[in-house]
Nucleic acid binder design. Sequence first.
RNA 1: GGAGAGAUGGCUGAGCGGUCAAAAGCACCUGACUGUAAAUCAGGCGCCUUCGGGCUACGUAGGUUCAAAUCCUGCUCUCUCCA
Length: 420
Amino acid sequence: MGIMTAVKSDFLHVMQERGFFHQCSDLAALDQKLCSGVQSAYIGFDATAQSLHIGNLTGIMMLYWFQQTGHKPITLMGGGTSKIGDPSFKDESRKLMDDDTIAANIEQIKATCFRQFLRYGDGPTDALMVNNDDWLSGLHYLSFLRDYGRHFTVNRMLSFDSVKLRLERESPLTLLEFNYMVMQGYDFLELHRRYGTLLQMGGSDQWGNIINGVDLGHKADQVQLFALTAPLLTTASGQKMGKTEKGAVWLNAAMLTPYDYWQYWRNVEDADVGKLLRRFTILPLDEIAKLESLGGSDINEAKKILAFEATKICHGEAAAQEAAATAQKVFEQGGVGDDLPSITVERARLSTGIALLDLLVEAGFAASKGEARRLVQGGGIRCNDNIVNDDKFVAKESDLTSEGYIKLSAGKKRHALVRI
RNA sequence: GGAGAGAUGGCUGAGCGGUCAAAAGCACCUGACUGUAAAUCAGGCGCCUUCGGGCUACGUAGGUUCAAAUCCUGCUCUCUCCA
């Protein structure tokens, strides 16, 4: 971690040594507050999908540690701000979402993304879930502008990096979207008023938005609020993290199976293993240091532990074990495991024969037959572990193994079972 | 309200009457090498196909032409400058 200001609070200490620390608005003062009693901190989450994804996991872990070190975490659902859409670093507007969709998303996220990490309840350090729609939707334009609009200067708002992209690209940034940062600033003030919340956290891309809230707290209520951001997650080779061939790495098992989730972690770059272990597992640091020091292909052991621990936290120990077991059978023994995706076909279809290309599309390996054909012609398709080069191949009953399935593979990593 | 510029595949961005399913780069997929890693190299990257070809695409609607992403007109949207 290098040399850093010595902090006394458990929470900031954990943030620093586990790699969550990027910027803080007034470290010494915040440290002091955290030492003086139970505090509350919040992070805002989008309600634009049915699930959060790995990109949100940093924030979730920050809240996890906040609670573990004796404080009260607040998860703020952006039910109101989702009606606007954060324009930060985006080069075009998002579609606006209707109320019902947003409400349904929030329900899903509550149930599948937070509960594993945070203990909710009424106790002093129990987590709290709030929705900014509760206060934003009732705002009156004129009085809001008069009371809070005067604390924001456009000059300053234009100086934020988050809007610069849009301006530089000469891509339209609507007033609606421009207001996002004002709303987010107001959220902070509102949470301070309601719960005495002193700290907002987030990824480093949220710094500007958070600081707006800090400034507003100072100007409107003469209180000192704090900002703490974590380094944005990128891979060692500089790519954004959190994408798979299937899209975002969702936390909701209904959107990404625990097996695929496990696989995501198993396939991270060597150079990222230590960083990810610190950030997304709760293993002791000395153990992580050992794992991180493994060289060459031994690092794979560390990746398996990362995958297991990360999956366990999110989907539970049983799911993590199953995923690990399937992975072992598939990759280390060349077999199959229970967690592999499977599709079911009717026996009658199979007895007349099913074109391999159709099967590949049905299994989700290709979006079209043309794409499936290219996969076959490129040598990327195996059927029961034998490469199939013939794009006219037809699967028949005789291709079923003695266990009653056909194992289809696309590339080295994607496998599926065809069952009757 | 006035004057210019522009809208091309997931993104950036060439093309400016046929040789354009559209250069190049990025992203993505597959193969080789490996360690289910990175880097590198090779191939692929609209849809369908009996592999001959067919179909739909260059903001949108029309038009001119044997032929249009390319020319003309209306519309929509964006940017810049002026009021």
